[in-house]
């Protein structure tokens, strides 16, 4: 084949450069919301009862602990890392909360959230100062937190007799709105405001996209990363409070099954696993999509045993769709 001379040459100069995101990029960016809408319509078609207020509220209630758990970890992913310890840390936090409630009463849940934040910050510090990949640090953390949970709980569920001080985590407000959903939205809103209203926004993005450039521009990269891990830990602790409130007990494996759905919520929301691109609001949408998929499976009569196949598949597919592989030189 012959190449027509000059005809295929791109025009040079700034005319070829688009000002903002291109149409395709805008569409990709809206994909999670579209997916959510499609899922709602599909579920309503299969089961018209789904659109009733009570079913919708049940869905947002189920999605709330997942959204809180994943919202914190989103910051770690935005910085270019990953936190695999969140579910195990949430399980440990649930045990601690059940154990501390009788003694500390109303101070028990803030104490648990603070302890979880410290655990997260420690992992962040190990990652940053010992220069160990976050994947390894939090894989180790996952194992350590699980084991501590088993030890302090005696490998058994710890029942909660008096849940007065954490009842706010599992009640209804304004008639029928689950309080957990309000907490989830509040957490996401707080994190999103913190990030967008302050220079943290570009500090986190720069760290995630290009740590070397961020460092040489004077961005406090280490501090940002440790902070992200601390927030991730705190969110795991808060998710544990919501879980204990609804199960009236803490358990050493209570939240373990939430790791995969949480990672799925982050990537389905459209946050790039390679860091930089994404946002906390996206994870809220992602958590709803993941929860709806699970609800949808049971609606059409698929056994819960297949759920993990679903999570595994959507993580892979979501990353395949969002990862710009042309910019990643080597995939490890």
């Amino acid at each position: 084949m012959s190449t027509p001379a000059a005809g295929t040459a791109e025009p040079s100069g700034s005319a070829a450069v688009a000002a903002g995101p291109t149409a395709t990029e805008r569409l990709t960016s809206l994909m999670p919301v579209l997916a959510l809408a499609v899922l709602v319509v599909a579920l309503a078609a299969v089961d018209p009862d789904f659109l009733r207020r009570s079913s919708l509220m049940a869905v947002v209630d189920a999605a709330a602990p997942l959204a809180v758990l994943a919202a914190g970890a989103t910051l770690v992913v935005l910085c270019g890392g990953i936190d695999l310890s969140i579910a195990a840390l949430a399980s440990l936090s649930s045990v601690l909360l059940a154990l501390w409630l009788p003694g500390l009463d109303a101070l028990a849940w803030p104490a648990v959230v603070a302890a979880a934040a410290v655990a997260g910050a420690l992992q962040g510090a190990a990652h940053v100062f010992l220069r160990i990949p976050s994947f390894i640090v939090t894989l180790g953390g996952m194992s350590i937190f699980s084991s501590i949970a088993l030890v302090v709980s005696g490998a058994a569920t710890v029942p909660v007799d008096d849940d007065t001080s954490i009842r706010w985590g599992f009640t209804r407000v304004l008639g029928s709105v689950p309080s957990a959903a309000v907490v989830a939205v509040a957490v996401v809103a707080a994190l999103a405001l913190l990030v967008t209203l302050t220079p943290l926004d570009s500090a986190i993005k720069a760290t995630g996209y290009s740590e070397a450039a961020a460092r040489l521009a004077g961005v406090p990269v280490d501090l940002v990363k440790v902070g992200a891990f601390a927030v991730s830990g705190a969110c795991a602790g808060l998710a544990a409070v919501l879980l204990v409130a609804r199960t009236f007990s803490g358990g050493p494996t209570l939240a373990d099954s939430l790791l995969l759905p949480a990672v799925a919520a982050i990537v389905v929301g459209g946050t790039a696993i390679t860091g930089g691109h994404g946002g906390v609001w996206r994870t809220l949408v992602g958590a709803l999509v993941v929860t709806l998929l699970r609800v949808g499976l049971s609606t059409v009569g698929v056994s819960a045993a297949y759920e993990s196949i679903l999570y595994g598949a959507i993580i892979v597919v979501a990353v395949a769709l969002t990862l710009d592989r042309s910019k990643v030189l080597v995939v490890k």
Partner: peptide
């Protein structure tokens, strides 16, 4: 690799080191 953050906007790259110029307080 080290000078710029490629996917970030011209504006955010330009104010990356001197965040003060785009802030009122924090």
């Amino acid at each position: 690799i080290e000078g710029m953050v490629g996917p970030m906007s011209v504006a955010d790259n330009m104010t990356l080191a001197k965040q003060g110029v785009r802030c009122a307080g924090p």
